[in-house]
Amino acid sequence: MHIANAVCPQCKAGFIVDQKLWDVGTVRLRCIACKHSFLPPASPKSLSVEEAANAAVPIRVWEIG
């Protein structure tokens, strides 16, 4: 399990995130407590969404609400 620790900047709730998702850096994480969406700080932005999703086609990220 390759994970990073995320902390919501709004409510300070902590939760775990897949390292690949973290490494994309342009996909907003979703707080488990207050539902606030935020970009992972200090992400290396070293992966594309497609690489993180192991997809062979361009990927659109569907945002809740």
Binding site: V27, R30, A53, V57, W62, I64
Partner: peptide, 11 residues
Amino acid sequence: LLPGTRVVEGP
């Protein structure tokens, strides 16, 4: 299951 679409899900 939609093609080319993903969502942030979990934990």
